[in-house]
C-alpha cells in the first residue's frame, strides 16, 4: 500500500513528464529531415568561440546518431530528466496537512517509509528516461534512419544514474524543509550552478556528473564512464542515507 500511496503522490508529475518527454523525443526524430535541409545554410566562417560552437553543432548533425546524441541525450533529455528528478524527489514527506501524522501512526518504520518512497520515485525516473529514449529507435525508420536500441539503453542508464543525484538531493532536502518549494528551488539552483561550473569553468569533463549524464565517453569511444557512474551512485547513496538519518531523528 505504501507503493500505491507513493504512486498517488507522484503520478501527475510522472505522467506529465512522460508525456512531455515522449513528445520531445518524437520531435527530435521528426525534425531531423528539416534540420538536415537547413544545414548548408549554416554560416561556417564565423570567428571565435561562437563560430567554433556553430561549426561543432553542424558537424554533429551530419550523422543521425551524433545528432540524436547531441540534441536528445546531451540536451533535451538531460535537462528534462534533471528537472523531473528534482520534481519527483521532492517528496512532501513532512507536511502535516498531507497526512504526515497519519502515516507516522501506521505500523511502518520510518526507514521503510522513505525506502519505498525513494524506490518508487527512482523507478518513475528510470521510466521517464528510458521509455522516451526507446521511442527513438522505434520511430527512426519513419524518417529513413536507424538508431540502435542498445545505444539508447546504455545512454539511458548513464543519464539515469547521474540524474539520480539530483533526485536524492531533493529527497534529502525534503526531510529538512516541510514546504514543497524550498527543496525544489534549492535543488534546481544547485543543478543550474553545477551545470554552469561544469560547462564554463571545467570545460565539460567526460567523467563529471554532467559528463556521465551525457554519456560522453560512450558516445565518443564506446566506453562506459565507470568512474563517473560509481561516483554518482555513491553520492546518491550518501544523500539518501542522510535523508534516512535526518528523517529518523525528527520530531513531528
Amino acid at each position: 500500500m505504501l507503493w500505491y500511496k507513493s504512486w498517488l503522490d507522484t503520478r501527475w508529475r510522472f505522467l506529465i513528464g512522460l508525456a512531455l518527454l515522449l513528445c520531445s523525443a518524437a520531435a527530435t526524430v521528426l525534425t531531423y529531415p528539416q534540420l538536415v535541409k537547413l544545414l548548408p545554410l549554416v554560416p561556417t566562417n564565423i570567428q571565435g568561440p561562437l563560430g567554433q560552437r556553430i561549426r561543432e553543432s553542424a558537424e554533429l548533425m551530419r550523422s543521425y546518431p551524433s545528432f540524436v546524441w547531441s540534441n536528445w541525450f546531451r540536451q533535451n533529455l538531460s535537462e528534462g530528466a534533471t528537472l523531473f528528478a528534482v520534481l519527483l524527489g521532492t517528496a512532501g514527506l513532512l507536511s502535516h496537512s498531507g497526512g504526515a501524522l497519519f502515516t507516522l501512526s501506521l505500523p511502518v518504520s520510518r526507514r521503510r517509509l522513505l525506502g519505498v518512497r525513494a524506490a518508487a520515485g527512482l523507478a518513475e525516473l528510470f521510466v521517464l528516461v528510458l521509455v522516451p529514449s526507446l521511442l527513438i529507435p522505434l520511430l527512426s525508420p519513419a524518417i529513413g534512419e536507424r538508431y540502435g536500441a542498445g545505444a539508447a539503453l546504455i545512454h539511458s542508464v548513464c543519464l539515469f544514474t547521474a540524474a539520480s543525484v539530483f533526485f536524492s538531493l531533493a529527497f534529502l532536502l525534503s526531510t529538512i524543509y516541510s514546504d514543497v518549494w524550498r527543496p525544489l528551488l534549492i535543488a534546481l539552483a544547485f543543478a543550474i550552478v553545477l551545470a554552469l561550473v561544469d560547462q564554463l569553468l571545467l570545460r565539460s569533463p567526460a567523467q563529471s556528473l554532467f559528463g556521465v549524464m551525457r554519456g560522453e565517453t560512450y558516445f565518443r569511444a564506446g566506453r562506459l564512464p565507470w568512474e563517473g557512474l560509481v561516483a554518482s551512485a555513491a553520492v546518491s547513496a550518501a544523500l539518501f542515507y542522510g535523508a534516512v538519518v535526518n528523517f529518523a531523528r525528527r520530531d513531528f
Binding site: 502535516h96 496537512s97 498531507g98 501524522l101 501512526s105 511502518v108 518504520s109
Partner: peptide, 19 residues
C-alpha cells in the same frame, strides 16, 4: 515502536488524513 503502532490506534487533534 512499530509493534506499538500495530496494536495502538491514534486520532490526532487535527484529524490529519489524506485529502
Amino acid at each position: 515502536s512499530v509493534e506499538i503502532r500495530r496494536r495502538t490506534a491514534f486520532v490526532g487533534e487535527e484529524k490529519d488524513l489524506y485529502g
